[in-house]
Amino acid sequence: MPTPDPSTPDQRLTGKAIEVHGLRMAYGKLEVLRGVDLEVEAGMVFCLVGPNGAGKTTTIEVLEGYRQRTAGDVSVLGADPSRGGRGLRDRIGILLQDGGVEPYLTVREVVDATRGYYRRPLPAAELLDIVGLSDQAKVRVRRLSAGQRRRLELALALAGDPELVFLDEPTTGFDPHARLAAWDAIRRLTARGTTVVLTTNVMDEAQALADRVAIIVAGRIVAHGTPLDVVGARGPGSAIRFRLPEGGPALPPELTRMIASSRDDVLELRTVEPAALVNTLSAWALQNGLPLHDLVVAPRSLEDAYLELTAAAAASAPGDEVATA
């Protein structure tokens, strides 16, 4: 990976690591991908999200060169992945959803072997440090916990110092600490200039990591852009939540109109003008001597948008089979 030259930021920003146009994939009569268009700019974290069976893994495996597409144009680092061969595989890293590691070898042995397959590998110590397995270097793979094994697979995906790395559901089965550590590792990759393509069905993960998000449902991209774009595409809005004890004074009507939901004594208000609403709300609360415990002003989350979009897409396409990818 050449070091990014700060004097020519435009060149890096406009470079496309991946271009996909009209990608289709069919197994017999079953259409798994129905015309997917994607562009991933170099140096970005691109996140493909969608329900199980929507075609995330199929899309990724076409890009990785594991599957032959039925139709469409696909370019990965300027090469066609179905014909890219060794040269392309030397420049990319892959964390599979169902990959395996030789159980009787140690962590260090597997890392060193994998480094040996690449022309410009990262040092083993650095790889183990990135994924936090330095203390497990001499442990045999079969003795690792599920989370440790997944982190080892991440280290193996990074062994060749890839320009582009594919991470298919990288944090499945992680506890919250391990997930944060993995996010940290992924952020460190982007700091090196590595382009990251990841799939997940954890919206927090997409929100935390992604520069660009695409939502895939039943083999089609139904929304794409920055996380804020995707959230905003369903209408702008902020959510304001607070606790309102029962038996207290009633909300004025201009606030009651905004109530989106109420559960127990927690109210959620939605608005496109959060500043005005907060002003009205706090004036009313101070007047009535209410502390407004647990007051939160938050943007609508990617999860909100995701749930709405996937429900809308499923409703608009009745009878569509959702294939397992």
Binding site: G100, P103, Y117, R119
Partner: peptide, 16 residues
């Protein structure tokens, strides 16, 4: 090795 996904992982590396 094939069933465990080991071959699939190796296939994604430049190992001939």
């Amino acid at each position: 090795a094939r069933d465990a996904g080991i071959l699939k992982r190796l296939r994604g590396t430049p190992l001939p």
